[in-house]
Design a protein around this nucleic acid. Structure first.
Lengths: 229, 229
DNA sequence: TAGATTGTTAATCGATTAACAATC
DNA sequence: TAGATTGTTAATCGATTAACAATC
């Protein structure tokens, strides 16, 4: 079966920049943390930051930090560390925070609206351009959040059309479990390339569409297991 | 430094049941998915379910499924598969869905309130007994959600007291980045044993406290990286 | 120069996959 | 019994850690 679950498999990820780099998934998943620490360092005026310092702040082995950074940059200066501003820009590049990606969100429940009101997305290069729901009572209601003045919830049957028309690449799913696969199908048909899925189901999609499952049950189960050990 | 990040390290997890079982973290993190599929199977009347069928529905290798299940149960019947009801109960046990764990939530923003309104927690054995916020304007406001009639947001300076008094073991953090460590400190001081952290920071806690970071930036960055490849 | 820190090679560790004898 | 599927051993794969020569 032709399905790719970005969150599950640790396949390496190709990058099409000049020299096409390959990032192990664990490395890719640590980059946002490095990004935040380096951003803080830059803000507080530190010119260079060493792998040992980065590691200390994130509780990651310093050899691990160097290995990770060598994948994305490899321009640290022995004796000094990494030039903070440059590293920051490099991380932004690799993580795609510079490009703005338009996204649609389906499922205007509490979680969906919480996400759509979150201002932080902007700094990660994501912009939610439309929010859909199947519930007639919700349609036409205003979206919460600073940047959303005047915008309203749209009927889900316009989803495919809008995705096609605006060539949206990213879809966010915050609908109940049993509606998720249907929404995913519509998204895929309309040409979406990546899905951020908050519904607790394993979606089936073609192999050229990436799915990231944000399954909160995993976190809960992990902690519950530990507490009841 | 004495810190343990449940979400990061793949240390094995001890279980104190009769024969103390050890689960690799990747295995533990797949169990909730097995749980859901098995629950669905039971509901639709299937008496037995085979590793190949479980794997097919979750896009996991069947040998992987058998290996995982042998850690938690090892009572599959060759030729038939696993008895669905029994496997379900075993998974509930291991995941701690039977014990009810009381939890507090700090940070009554949209995300916090979305979590506290989520009815699904009950089925995972989690009960949020109190919600706190530092914002005076929010204190006293009603909690959203079915089961929350009559309950209100409490001032965060009562957090330590309540945790101590009710011997709460699990804390959920949905405050902004710069408040998260402070909240974590209060929780730890008051005797909390596990923290579910939604703030995008690496918390520092004693080694006997487990932290699960639910960092949404990781998902976003992963997808962005893929889309801008 | 002397001290510090990099990038990388080699060693270790752990998880996934393949294969198959055991068994329902 | 014959067919199917388990549990587990061995082989593979990939990530982490240790160590150190290169270099600022």
């Amino acid at each position: 079966m032709s399905t790719r679950q970005a969150a599950d498999k640790s396949k390496s990820v190709e990058d099409a920049s000049p020299e096409s780099i390959t990032l192990p998934r664990p490395t890719l998943e640590r980059l946002p943390a490095y990004y935040r620490v380096v951003a803080a360092a830059v803000k507080s005026g530190e010119a260079y930051i060493a792998s040992s310092e980065l590691g200390r702040r994130l509780q990651i082995d310093d050899a691990q930090v160097r290995r990770d950074l060598s994948c994305v940059w490899g321009k640290g200066r022995p004796g000094l560390g990494y030039k903070a501003v440059d590293l920051l820009h490099r991380l932004e590049d690799v993580l795609g925070f510079n490009n703005v990606t338009d996204a649609v969100l389906v499922g205007a429940g509490r979680l969906g609206l919480a996400l759509c009101a979150y201002p932080g997305f902007r700094s990660y290069g994501i912009q939610i351009v439309a929010v859909f729901d199947a519930d007639k009572n919700k349609i036409g209601k205003k979206l919460p959040g600073e940047g959303n003045a005047g915008r309203v919830i749209l009927p889900v049957d316009k989803l495919g059309d809008l995705v096609r028309r605006l060539r949206i690449q990213l879809g966010i799913i915050t609908v109940p479990e049993h509606e998720a696969q249907g929404v995913a199908n519509t998204m895929v048909e309309a040409g979406i390339r990546a899905i951020w899925n908050f519904a607790p189901v394993s979606l089936t999609v073609p192999s050229d569409v990436v799915v990231r499952n944000e399954d909160l049950a995993i976190g809960l189960a992990t902690l519950q297991h530990y507490l009841t050990k």
